[in-house]
Computed example of a mutant assay.
Amino acid sequence: MTYQGVLSKMQTEFGDPIQYYLVFENSFLNMNQVLNKELEINFEGYQCLNCGKKKKIYRQGFCYDCFYSSPAVGDWIMKPELSTAHLGIADRDLEYEQQVQLQPHIVYLALSSEVKVGVTRKTQMPTRWIDQGASQAIPIVEVPNRYLAGITEVALKDHYTDKTNWRKMVQNDLAHADLVAERSKLENLIPAEVKEFYHLEKNDLYEMHFPVLNYPKKVNSLNLDKTTNFKGKLVGIKGQYLIFEDGTVFNVRSFEGYVVTLTI
């Protein structure tokens, strides 16, 4: 079977295991059903996820012009502490930024390669943790806007990483930690204006189980700009990575906006 379209991050469904879907304009593919089968990937070209033009992708699925103009990729996305919508101050588009920033956000601990701290909109639980390949995650605080979440993350980055080591994650080389116990230590580390949102709950530890048949001992990242055709047996999916039998891994999210043909 053959599928063609523009790559965007795989959509997921929380379950045991996580279900993964590649969604194209006129079709979709449940990637779990491709496990243990040969999958061929051919790079065909580019299409910006924002303007739809066939322009070379610069970052995050956007062409150069859209990356520096669209409010969907403002600096506050990666650095929530830079959010200003709660002050009525625009970065690129105040209406858009108010819609995204002025809603409940979660600051969390997740267990992937190490214990990491992060921020996500409440509506993105547990999608955010699935995309990171976290085996466990636990909320620390729920706050009413992105700015408060951002300053909380900054305070906790002195004690936890905010990055995932993708190689360790896809190899299942995970740290061992008790996230419930870790969370109980944090009251005195979070900013004063956030302390009122710090509440301990007993039953809010999430566990994620990924559809992986075999974890690789060594990994090699597939880059479609350098390797325009690849074929291999799919043996796992974790985070936004496709894992192949020969140790090749393909980060779907890194190649958003790339037009591909998939053959099974």
Rank of each mutant, 00 (worst) to 15 (best):
T2P: 03
Q4R: 14
Q4H: 11
G15D: 04
G15R: 00
P17K: 04
Y21M: 10
L22M: 15
V23T: 15
V23Y: 04
V23W: 05
V23S: 04
F24A: 01
F28A: 10
F28Y: 14
L29H: 10
V34G: 00
L35Q: 11
N36E: 11
K37V: 03
K37H: 14
E38P: 00
E38S: 08
E40P: 01
I41E: 00
N42W: 02
N42P: 01
F43L: 05
F43M: 06
E44R: 02
G45I: 12
G45A: 13
Y46G: 03
Y46P: 00
Q47M: 08
L49N: 10
C51P: 02
C51I: 13
C51R: 11
K54L: 12
K55V: 12
R59V: 07
G61R: 03
C63D: 08
C63N: 07
C66A: 14
S69P: 06
S69A: 14
S70P: 04
S70M: 11
S70T: 15
A72L: 05
G74L: 09
D75T: 11
M78Y: 12
K79D: 14
E81P: 06
S83C: 14
S83D: 03
G88A: 15
L94I: 13
E95P: 05
Y96H: 08
E97S: 10
V100C: 00
Q101W: 10
Q103H: 04
P104T: 10
P104N: 14
L111W: 04
E114L: 02
V115R: 01
V115W: 07
K116W: 10
K116H: 09
T120L: 02
K122E: 13
T123M: 11
M125I: 05
P126D: 02
W129M: 13
I130Q: 05
Q132W: 13
G133C: 03
Q136K: 10
Q136E: 11
P139V: 09
P139N: 06
V141F: 08
V141H: 07
N145Y: 15
G150Y: 09
I151G: 06
T152I: 08
D158P: 00
T161W: 12
T164E: 04
N165T: 06
W166E: 04
R167D: 12
K168M: 10
E182R: 04
E182H: 01
L186D: 00
E187D: 11
N188G: 13
I190L: 08
A192W: 07
E193T: 15
E193A: 15
E196H: 15
L200K: 03
E201H: 13
K202V: 09
N203S: 12
N203H: 07
M208S: 00
L213C: 07
L213T: 09
K217W: 07
K218Y: 06
N220Y: 14
S221Q: 05
L222G: 02
L224R: 08
D225W: 11
K226W: 08
T227L: 13
G232D: 04
V235T: 09
G239Q: 01
G239L: 06
Q240L: 04
L242D: 01
L242A: 02
F244G: 01
N251G: 09
V252K: 00
E256Y: 03
G257W: 01
Y258I: 03
L262W: 08
L262Q: 12
T263K: 14
